[in-house]
Simulated scan of single mutants.
Amino acid sequence: MAVNEGLSIGALADRTGLAVSAIRYYEAQGLIRPWRNAGGQRRFQRADLRRLSFVMIAQQFGFTLPQIKSELDRLPGGRTPTKADWARISAGFRAALDQRIDAMIRLRDNLDGCIGCGCLSLDTCALYNPADRAAALGQGPRYLMGDQPAS
């Protein structure tokens, strides 16, 4: 296959391990932008292999398609992303992953105690959240979300 012919959707599916329907979905979401050849068939750039691999990895880390698209939109069209391109993206994702890791550590360390939900159903809530003080901080499990209980 000549370089300028691009990859067929089947070839892209074979290389990425994605179903053709998934590739079409990602196309509809604007994550990849194929063109049509003279016969009307979709053709993809070789860079789309990396883009789709990035999508798959980012999804495993819990990033949403809109978040992923926002990052991919910053990549240059028409050329394979460089190491510098990926380094820039990874710096932003690293900060988000660090926040998630911190939240997971707090969850792990507080599973057996109060998570600041304001439920008042545990005997220890009177110690960790007397008079439901966490409710004044907002909705949800406030202490798990990073708020600190008043001393």
Rank of each mutant, 00 (worst) to 15 (best):
L75R: 00
R94E: 15
L111R: 02
R94Q: 15
G17R: 02
A87D: 14
C114Q: 13
R94S: 07
F44W: 10
L137C: 06
G138Q: 13
L107C: 05
I32S: 06
G30A: 10
Q99V: 11
G78S: 10
Y128G: 02
T80P: 00
D147P: 01
R42Y: 00
A131F: 10
P81N: 11
A11R: 15
R24Q: 03
P66M: 04
A84W: 06
R100Q: 15
G92W: 14
S90Y: 11
S21W: 00
L52S: 08
S21T: 08
L127F: 11
A58G: 04
F54P: 03
G40R: 01
Q139N: 04
Q59Y: 06
T16F: 05
I89L: 13
R43Y: 06
D102Q: 15
D48G: 11
P76H: 13
D147G: 03
L111Y: 12
F93D: 04
A103P: 05
P76E: 15
G6V: 03
C119E: 02
I89P: 01
L107Q: 07
A150N: 01
D112I: 00
L75W: 07
A135G: 06
Y128Q: 12
R15S: 14
Q59W: 07
D73K: 04
R36V: 01
Y143G: 00
R100I: 01
A84C: 05
S53D: 13
A11C: 03
P66L: 01
S53P: 06
P130L: 14
N110G: 07
L18A: 09
I101S: 07
Y25C: 08
I115A: 10
Q99T: 15
A28K: 04
L31T: 10
R106C: 02
F63T: 10
Q148R: 07
I23Y: 05
W35G: 05
S121Q: 13
A131L: 06
A84P: 01
G140R: 00
A2W: 12
I68P: 01
G140F: 01
R24C: 00
E71S: 10
R106D: 02
G113Y: 14
Q148K: 10
A136N: 04
F61R: 04
D73N: 12
I23K: 02
L18V: 03
L97Y: 14
A96K: 12
L12C: 05
G10T: 08
K83I: 13
R24G: 06
A135W: 04
A131N: 15
A131H: 09
I101L: 14
Q148D: 05
D98W: 12
N4P: 00
I9T: 03
G6Y: 05
R79F: 10
D102H: 12
M1Q: 05
L12Y: 00
A135D: 05
G118S: 02
A131Y: 12
